[in-house]
């Protein structure tokens, strides 16, 4: 436990030391909020966007670089398992996403008078599931794509269309029909739905179940395909 805490604290510091993840997970959503003149309806989608940027945009490159640069192998010579480092990366991503999200929500409420979230416990559960789901897809990418550059690139190529088509960055109502239908099949869409419903104050179980299902499947796929070196 001591080792896992130390690993997680370090991973979180490393994330916050990275200007790119700092910008995209914290400053960029705030900029979008300002551009939308503080439209509170956009906030739940932006939360999904933040965790997608971290879990799919950043995580695959980080994990692939740990493999390529033999950080994982070095850890395998210590008493702890390299799996712990991947777990620490997951927790750090969730925590960094949470920090960006809390800041965004607080700004929306305090500076733009947005309505406070209706059901905070369900919103928290939706956020956690959405964040872990994004990371689990990130682990799949890191398992399939071997080198660091490739994993970063594929992560971006998966993440960017997804945040636009799932309703995270722009409302799906604004999309043409064909593109909207693609969104029905994207794993981030139930994440956006879950966050939006919880924000408005009701509780829908179905999107949460879908998120949990995606997490289970993606983790199994990543665990099967992942190579340590």
């Amino acid at each position: 436990m001591k080792a896992f805490t130390a690993l997680t604290a370090t991973e979180l510091r490393l994330l916050l030391r990275d200007p790119a993840s700092l910008f995209f997970m914290i400053a960029f959503p705030l900029m979008l909020l300002v551009l939308k003149r503080g439209d509170g309806d956009a906030v739940p989608g932006y939360l999904a966007m933040i965790v997608a940027i971290g879990g799919m945009g950043a995580l695959p490159g980080i994990v692939a670089s740990y493999r390529e640069r033999k950080v994982l192998k070095r850890l395998a010579t210590t008493p702890i398992s390299p799996v712990l480092l991947l777990g620490a990366q997951l927790v750090a991503q969730v925590a960094a996403g949470l920090a960006g999200s809390v800041l965004l929500v607080a700004t929306a409420i305090a500076a733009f008078g947005a309505q406070a979230p209706g059901n905070v416990p369900v919103l928290a559960a939706a956020f956690l599931l959405c964040s872990v789901m994004a990371c689990s897809l990130g682990f799949v990418i890191a398992a399939v794509v071997r080198n660091t550059r490739g994993a970063s690139l594929i992560g971006m190529l998966v993440m960017f269309p997804m945040i636009f088509l799932s309703g995270a960055a722009v409302p799906r109502k604004a999309l043409p029909d064909a593109l909207r239908r693609i969104g029905d099949f994207l794993p981030l869409t139930p994440g956006v739905d879950a966050l939006r419903v919880a924000w408005s104050g009701t509780a829908a179980v179905f999107p949460l179940l879908i998120l949990a299902g995606i997490i289970v499947v993606a983790t199994a796929v990543a665990a099967t395909l992942f190579r340590w070196e």
Partner: peptide
């Protein structure tokens, strides 16, 4: 204790 060939640490640690 082991020091492995070409092993490294995260860049920013």
């Amino acid at each position: 204790g082991a020091q492995l060939q070409e092993s490294s640490l995260p860049e920013r640690i």
